[in-house]
Design a protein around this nucleic acid. Sequence first.
DNA 1: CGCAAAGTACGACGGCTGTCAAAGTTCGAC
DNA 2: GTCGAACTTTGACAGCCGTCGTACTTTGCG
Lengths: 118, 118
Amino acid sequence: MAATRQKNKDARIPAHPDVRTISLQQVLEALVDPVRRHIVSALYASHEDLACGTIDLPVSKSTATHHFHVLREAGLIRQYYVGTSRMNALRRDEIDEAFPGLLRALVARPEGPSAGGA
Amino acid sequence: MAATRQKNKDARIPAHPDVRTISLQQVLEALVDPVRRHIVSALYASHEDLACGTIDLPVSKSTATHHFHVLREAGLIRQYYVGTSRMNALRRDEIDEAFPGLLRALVARPEGPSAGGA
DNA sequence: CGCAAAGTACGACGGCTGTCAAAGTTCGAC
DNA sequence: GTCGAACTTTGACAGCCGTCGTACTTTGCG
């Protein structure tokens, strides 16, 4: 079964943490970065999964990968492949269940009083 | 006039940021630290102002001072002196107004699924 | 097969931040 | 005015995190 790590090519999808494993600490560490919060906001707003490339970020590709990685590890997004594109889905319901109101409080507000909205 | 800094002894109270100046970024940077979140939780739970010394923290006094400083700068707490004690008040209503639901989402939940509550 | 596209993995590097100890300041009590 | 309590300030230091470029992998296409 190779439960630890399916070495088959159909599984480039790394493991996602269970919702119950997610700690507030980790979620906050993930969301404190503006770039990552931007990603989450984009997913939150779009209401559909987005490929990494479709969210444009002010950082290099490798850095972007890093951010997606952190978000995934924190349990905030789910990732899967479609061709060469990696899709990202916000784990909205699960986060809401674990930390009610958090996502909304953070995403509803772009950047405080100074930002009008992108 | 010395508007910049009242050199009088009755004002050891440093300036507090206006609510409208507070940025989500800064608030998150403040709350991402467990020690600071602990302070905020204590204030949130106690419903009354607490002196620095009454909240016991797993760090040295100078570090504690640093944390209180960060919280004040982020607009999360208000500080004033009573004798040699520095009192801390959570700026609850103001934060709620600026970032509805945020405080509650962060403080209501100690540390995620694993913690039962101190 | 050969090539381009989309990400990933790997170091490396710089800056920021939490940490402490030691010295200083202010206040209250005696 | 002296002492102690409660913090603050300063300076130093370690560790982490975001950043990048480069090389690599996988997929899809013709």
